[in-house]
Simulated scan of single mutants.
Amino acid sequence: MTKELKTGAVVIIIVIAFIWGFNFLKGHDLLDGEARSFNVEYTKIGGLNKASAVTLNGLKVGKVNDIVFNKTPEKRGHLIVSFNVESDFEFSKKSIVRIYSPNPIAGSSLAIVPNYEGEIAVSGDTLVGEMEESLFTSIGERLDPLQQKIEKVIVRADTLFSGVNKILNDDTIEGVNTSVSNLAGIISDLRTTISTVNTLILDNQQNLKVTLKNTKDITSNLSKVSDSLTMVNINDIVRKAENTVDNFNQLSMKLNSDEGSIGKLVNDDALYNNIEAATKELEELLRDLKLNPKRYVHFSLFGKKAKPFTPNAQQSELIEDLKEEIKELKQ
């Protein structure tokens, strides 16, 4: 073999090794035969790049070949990710291709979540894609609302402190200091008062003991009185009181009725009128007796007969006046 032939063979081997090594470093082994190619569409890829690994059940089965923007106007800004699967493991078109991050430091990768129901996926199919939020993304999403609340709290606190600063001017601070001084004086007075009360109690301790003893005696006497009251037959007292009230009611009913002399005297007008007329006649008789005693009483030492009564003019006038008065009284 000539030297030139040897040199050409070495160059060919180097080129083949370079091509195989380059593809191998890119994640595609030329010796494994033809790989299947799939497409997935995402709105964001979260740090996914070309040559990112593609895993299936945790096993690396391929790599990302290309990432391009979707040129369709309705989906402008969406990203189409093309990747190869070098394994002959079969899964359906319902399988999900998920972007995930193995750890916080490493970049994102693709994980095929296989589904075995339905039609088997073939090279060139577009699969359903989704993105798994990383730890930091999840923490960020949870911290965003908290950050907004903290900002609102800070704003409110700033407003509160501004109001406090407006309130706590020199006059207010001086007033607070004065109030504190007055409070200290009040506390001092309270201490003095308490000390005085303690001294008073100590000085009158014997009197307090006597007072407490008297109070105890009074309580004991009250207890005895209470015991005595409990021994009294309250039912008999109540029964007698009821009988007394019944008797009084009966007496009142008889007084209100026409039975008996007292009831007739109270309720019968005729009896009252008769008594009044008799009283007037008795009054007239007494008056006539005073004026004409000789008409009723005759006294003679020699047995002289009494003269018949003949009223004179003055007596006639007096009798007429009496008659008029009697008529007026009757009216």
Rank of each mutant, 00 (worst) to 15 (best):
F309S: 08
K152M: 04
A313D: 12
F89K: 09
K304N: 13
D236K: 11
G33A: 10
L329N: 10
T310S: 13
G107H: 07
E317Y: 07
T196P: 05
A53H: 06
S162I: 01
T72S: 15
R295Q: 04
A17L: 15
V40Q: 07
D217E: 11
S123L: 12
S123P: 01
L143Y: 14
K294A: 12
T279S: 13
V54Y: 08
G33Y: 04
I201H: 05
K50H: 00
N273K: 15
S228F: 06
A51G: 03
E242W: 03
L318C: 07
N235C: 01
Q331Y: 07
E281R: 02
A121S: 02
S109R: 09
V40C: 01
V225K: 08
G118E: 05
E41W: 02
E325Q: 15
L143R: 03
E4H: 05
G303P: 02
F91C: 08
V68T: 14
G129Y: 11
A184S: 03
L48I: 10
L143F: 15
V225P: 02
P73A: 02
G175K: 06
N177M: 04
V64R: 09
S188R: 00
D268H: 06
V81A: 05
L146S: 07
I12C: 07
L229T: 11
S37D: 01
N204C: 00
L30I: 12
Y116H: 09
Y100C: 02
N70E: 01
L255R: 09
I319Y: 05
R98P: 03
E317S: 11
V81R: 05
N103A: 06
L286C: 00
T219M: 11
S228E: 11
N169F: 00
E276K: 08
G58E: 05
K240E: 11
Q147E: 09
V122G: 00
S162G: 06
L5G: 04
L59G: 02
K254H: 06
N177I: 03
I13G: 12
N233G: 02
G8N: 14
L301V: 01
S226H: 09
S92N: 07
S179Q: 05
I187R: 01
R76W: 13
K216V: 10
F302N: 08
N165Y: 03
S37H: 12
S181C: 00
G303K: 02
S316T: 14
F83C: 01
N165A: 04
E119Q: 13
G77P: 10
G46T: 10
P114D: 06
K254E: 08
A313S: 14
N249Y: 12
T244L: 15
V210E: 15
L5E: 13
F302I: 09
V232M: 10
K152W: 07
A157W: 08
S92F: 07
G58V: 07
E90N: 12
E325I: 14
D269M: 09
V153R: 04
T310H: 05
G47C: 06
L146E: 03
V68E: 12
